[in-house]
Amino acid sequence: MEPPNPLPEFVYKITPTAPPQPIPEAYPLSDLDQKDGFVHLSTASQIPTTADLFFASSTSFYLVKLRLSNFEPSSVKWDETPGTNGCPHLYGNFGGKDVVDCKEVVRPEGLTWSEALKGEAEWLV
């Protein structure tokens, strides 16, 4: 699948637990990322859908904000995923030098992730 045009400045890794501090040179890969052979990432606009699908029973998660231009274009594939315009998958890894910021996101009781993330619009660019 072709990458979006224009490319987003940032992509995000959603993690169920706080990232290690300091963030190591090679980020510890999740079991899913190891199994699939790439790091699952999301664009800002994909995070609410991804969170509603995969973190529906969670009340919080962490977002690791990565600068997309830090990666070789050939290492990021925009793979077709139902309901999206293509999800970024990093074939390789990232580390502390690629991380712009990290943030815990908490979902108040009774809200979906889509509703809870509306308050994060300025951070999710």
Rank of each mutant, 00 (worst) to 15 (best):
M1C: 12
M1L: 12
P4A: 15
P4M: 15
P4W: 13
P6C: 15
P6H: 14
P8K: 14
E9W: 13
Y12N: 04
Y12K: 13
Y12C: 14
K13N: 02
K13W: 04
I14T: 11
I14F: 11
T15D: 15
T15R: 14
T15H: 13
T15G: 15
P16I: 08
P16F: 07
P16N: 11
A18N: 11
P19M: 04
Q21F: 09
Q21P: 14
I23Q: 00
P24V: 04
P24I: 05
P24Q: 07
P24S: 07
E25D: 09
A26P: 08
Y27M: 09
Y27V: 10
P28H: 13
L29R: 13
L29Y: 08
L29D: 13
S30W: 04
S30Q: 10
L32Q: 08
L32H: 10
K35S: 11
G37P: 04
G37L: 12
F38L: 13
H40S: 12
L41E: 01
T43W: 08
A44W: 09
A44Q: 10
A44E: 08
S45Q: 12
S45G: 14
S45F: 12
Q46K: 00
T49H: 12
T50K: 09
D52H: 06
F55C: 10
S57R: 13
T59E: 11
S60V: 01
S60N: 10
Y62E: 03
Y62S: 03
Y62N: 02
Y62F: 07
L63Y: 03
L63V: 06
L66G: 04
R67A: 08
R67P: 08
R67S: 05
R67Y: 10
S69Q: 08
S69T: 14
N70Y: 09
F71T: 06
F71L: 08
E72C: 14
S74I: 05
S74M: 01
S75H: 01
S75A: 02
S75L: 06
S75V: 00
V76G: 00
K77E: 02
K77D: 03
W78E: 01
E80W: 14
T81L: 03
T81F: 15
T81H: 13
P82D: 15
G83C: 11
G83I: 05
G83N: 15
G83M: 04
G83Q: 12
T84V: 04
G86P: 03
C87L: 10
C87K: 02
C87D: 03
L90D: 02
L90E: 07
Y91A: 02
Y91D: 06
G92I: 01
G92V: 07
N93R: 05
N93H: 01
N93P: 04
F94K: 00
F94A: 05
G95R: 00
G95W: 00
G96Y: 00
K97A: 05
K97E: 07
K97I: 05
D98L: 01
V99S: 00
V100Y: 02
C102P: 03
V105I: 05
V105M: 05
V106T: 04
P108F: 02
P108Y: 01
P108Q: 02
E109I: 12
E109Y: 07
G110S: 01
G110W: 00
L111N: 06
L111K: 04
T112Y: 07
W113L: 03
S114M: 06
E115Y: 12
K118C: 09
K118T: 11
E120I: 05
E120R: 12
E120M: 06
A121Y: 10
A121D: 14
E122V: 12
W123C: 13
L124V: 06
L124D: 04
V125G: 07
